[in-house]
Amino acid sequence: MRLRVLGCSGGIGTDSYTTAMLLDDDVLIDAGTGVGTLALDDLLKIDHVFVTHAHLDHIAFIPFLVDTTGSLRDRPLIVHALPSTLQCLQAHIFNDHIWPDFSCIPDANRPYMRYEPIAVGKTITLGSRKITPLPADHIVPAVGFQMDSGQSSLVFTGDTTASDALWDVINQITNLRYLIVESAFSDAGQEIAVHSKHFYASLLAKELNKLQHAAEIYITHLRQSEAEVTMREISAGVKHCKLHRLMNNQVFEF
C-alpha cells in the first residue's frame, strides 16, 4: 500500500492544505482542501472516500470531487463514514441548498455518489487491502483508520483527544509501522483544545507514552503559526520515540 499526503495542516494559506491523503490511486482518507492539488486524471481514479468525521476541514472537497468527476465515471463514488457523519453530509451539504444531492443524480438507479456506513472495529476489505475504523474521542462522532497491507499497518488517528480505547486497539496491532496522530494546538491553546476535544502538545506527549510499539510517529494538523513550538513541546514530553512533522506530498509505503 502507498499513502501520499495531500494536506496535513490545521489551516490554509501558502502551501498549506487541510487533511486529505491518497491511498494507492483509488482511495481518499478524508477530503480536505488537499484534494484540490490533484489533476483531473487522478481525481477520476478515486472510487472511495473514507471520512473520519464531519468537520469541514476533512470533508470540504467531497462536493467538488463528485461534481467534477460524476458525469465522467461509470460507477458511483462511495463515501464511507459513520452513520451520524453520513447524516450530516446529507442534511447539511448534499441537501439541494448548499450543494446538489448527488446520491440521486442523475437518478436513484445511477447516482454519482453512494453512502456506505461504517462501524468501529468492522474491517472493510478492498482487494488485498484492509481498512478498519478505530475509536476516537472528538467533539463530534469520529473515527481513526488502520490501513493494513498484510505486511504492515499505518494508523491515522483522525481528530481526537485522549482515549484509552484508541491506545488499547493500537497496541494490539502487531504489524504497526507508522502512526499519524494529530496535535491541533500547542500548550498555549490548552483551553480551546480541551473544549474542542483536540490534542494539545503536553497531553499528546503523555498519551504517546502509552504506545507499546516501535512505530514511526508523525504529527499532523499543526497550525502554521505554532508548528515548531508544538513539535518542541511534544518532543520534550515523549520518553521513548522520535517524532516527525508530517509534510505535504510525503509518501508512506507499507
Rank of each mutant, 00 (worst) to 15 (best):
R110E: 11
D168W: 06
R129M: 11
A142Q: 04
V155I: 15
T123P: 12
S149N: 06
G121L: 12
G121P: 07
F145E: 02
P117S: 14
Y115N: 10
S186H: 00
P111N: 11
I124S: 06
I105G: 03
N175W: 04
I105W: 07
K122S: 15
A165Q: 12
Y115P: 04
R129W: 10
I105M: 13
P117E: 09
A188L: 06
D107Q: 13
H138S: 13
A165T: 11
D107C: 14
T132A: 05
C104N: 10
T123I: 11
M113E: 02
F145G: 01
S128P: 06
L176A: 02
H97P: 05
T174R: 12
M147F: 15
V181K: 00
Q190D: 04
N171K: 07
T161E: 05
V181P: 00
I139A: 12
A162T: 10
F102D: 01
N175H: 08
G121D: 10
M113C: 10
Q146C: 13
F156E: 00
P117L: 09
D101F: 09
G127A: 07
S103P: 03
Q146M: 15
Q172E: 10
Y115L: 13
P135Y: 03
D159C: 13
N171M: 09
H138D: 09
T157S: 08
H138V: 06
S186F: 02
I98Q: 13
N171Q: 08
T123Q: 13
M147K: 02
W99C: 13
N175D: 09
H97Q: 15
V120H: 03
A142S: 15
P117Y: 08
A142P: 03
L166V: 05
S153Y: 02
R177N: 07
A162I: 06
S183R: 00
S183C: 11
G121M: 11
A188W: 03
W99S: 15
